[in-house]
Design a protein around this nucleic acid. Sequence first.
DNA 1: GAAACTCGGGTAATCGATTTCCCGATCCTC
DNA 2: GAGGATCGGGAAATCGATTACCCGAGTTTC
Lengths: 349, 349
Amino acid sequence: MRVTIHDVARVAGVSVASASRALSGRRKVTPEIAERVARAAAELGYQPNAVAKALRDQTTGTIGMIVPGIGNPFFTTIVEAVERELQKTGTDLVLCASQYSPEVEARRLETLLARRVDGLIISPCDIEASVPAVLDAARRVPLVQLDRHIASAGADWVGVDDEAGMSQAVDHVVAGGARSVVFVGSRLMNSSARLRLGGFERAVARSGVQTAAPLLGEFTLEWGIEAGRRLLDGGPLPDAVVCGNDEIAVGLLRSLRTGGLRFPADVSVVGFDDVGHATMCDPPLTTVRQPVEEMAAEAVRLLGQVKADDPRPAQRVAIAPSLVVRQSSRPAAGATPERPGRSTGRETA
Amino acid sequence: MRVTIHDVARVAGVSVASASRALSGRRKVTPEIAERVARAAAELGYQPNAVAKALRDQTTGTIGMIVPGIGNPFFTTIVEAVERELQKTGTDLVLCASQYSPEVEARRLETLLARRVDGLIISPCDIEASVPAVLDAARRVPLVQLDRHIASAGADWVGVDDEAGMSQAVDHVVAGGARSVVFVGSRLMNSSARLRLGGFERAVARSGVQTAAPLLGEFTLEWGIEAGRRLLDGGPLPDAVVCGNDEIAVGLLRSLRTGGLRFPADVSVVGFDDVGHATMCDPPLTTVRQPVEEMAAEAVRLLGQVKADDPRPAQRVAIAPSLVVRQSSRPAAGATPERPGRSTGRETA
DNA sequence: GAAACTCGGGTAATCGATTTCCCGATCCTC
DNA sequence: GAGGATCGGGAAATCGATTACCCGAGTTTC
């Protein structure tokens, strides 16, 4: 049997109330009692039971986080950032992976709620199918969506301004001389996929360059490789390819290079995220950087403000990304590589 | 205020005992009461408080897992495997990252113990510095080390047979005609680093080929790239390079290729782990596959048997890895690529 | 010098779910 | 038909930490 505060009190020869007060310091005790309790606790190796404390205090000191999968470097990066941020406030993170399945996601939400986490940070895997579970959870506990979000309003969100990011990517390749641009992304089952394709299409329409039907698969290296093969097999190549994330872009670089193409001479490739291996691939990848640290900090900050089922209007915080120009794309003639700039857009939906 | 079983009982017009029994089904109630309770629970949206249940039952239905970092694809793979395995038994996983720091690791252990996890799976970040915290935790709760382990005995371990893996890797490149082999690995702060270097050295000594001083850095892509540069800069190249993990190997391939080398014509490269991008890199990587699913299953199985502070001798389960031959290494003349074989070594330490 | 106040210790309620114990009612069994 | 067994409901204890409340002793104040 584990040692409880009763044991400490007994050994110290005081009441449990005094033992508790001596240990927590939340009310004064005489130096002598403090001393006896401290000695007894040390001697017995007493460690407070966080379960009992959570029940009594009605708070667990715990935040739940659900991401689609931890195999994707973008999500591991953002998880690490959130963990660092929470550490500052002394709250623990309970991490779950939904495995890209709305059913698993709903189950994870249930168990996190049953375990009475003090708040939830979630990147919903499906823009439609995740709606009921996310809204239900938001009604019961403070909840902030991070990165991905559901179609419905009613829950706060922090993420990147996909529209602005795509705009920068397209403008960059157009400035580099591209007359035709193709988008390679993910099927439109999540908000990132939709917003990035939408942003791409609007940017392309605005700048008047040619484009073909987008290639939509998954946010994976494998899909990038496959998409590269399809581009090689199907007719004339575009001058530039803008990708939905870096995984796809790295895969694409690989299969296009295997096909004999050189970057950026034959084709420019731009990614999205700037996490993981974007700097390490060959050639280093021009990409739209998500300000992950800021997003994590903002999500945690917002979570502290949110009350469950708050009538306050849902906040949507879109942080501006920045284009990082490396060697996979042709820069504008005479242009100097851009430096990461920062600005924050904020709106209320 | 959240709805409790008292609310359900009140609405159903029965005692809390009956409500509890109706909901859990652990003792019979009349169909009428079962019906009334079920209706009341559904109507109120009752969800049992897992914190209260944990306090009463003295079990949380939770396993804690600590890995050095989730940025490393090997650890994310093994975490996913453990999560899948635990799901079968209905237990939840609480994941923590020690960030490769023994201090953070010790803190994480403390909070997991305070939260009364039912067991711990840990990959200790440092073979020496992690000893006290791990032994202390093992005294208080069932604990199994997975992959990495501490220098001291006294806690169970499940992992791969590094010695056998290195042996296969060295024998393979020697059979392919290599007369000189170099090891590129990690500094010797964890058990994997030590055992793999040790296995490499013994295998090299046995087969009588030449070797130079090993290059030791970190288990990262960056270090692989850097090590490749050092090989290019420093004197004659070896016929083969055996790496401590796949990250290093992929980085090495990249910088050696940038240096104009071709694989496996100029040099053979072998990795270790076979997770993540080993199949996706160029050329696909010959590597020693860790049977991650089996390791996870074995760890969970063992955890179920372990009692805290059990006088039973600590088990050490070393699962045999298998060499997966791809295109980064020269196969033995006339040899057909090996197929993943499986066998399990088991010993008691 | 007495009333009021402060200080600090102990008792017991509290958080929510489960389960032991008890008790009345019904059902067998001989 | 009486005694025992079975069934199922309710009251209350339990898990462990915290804290509201009470109370006695000592201190202050007019």
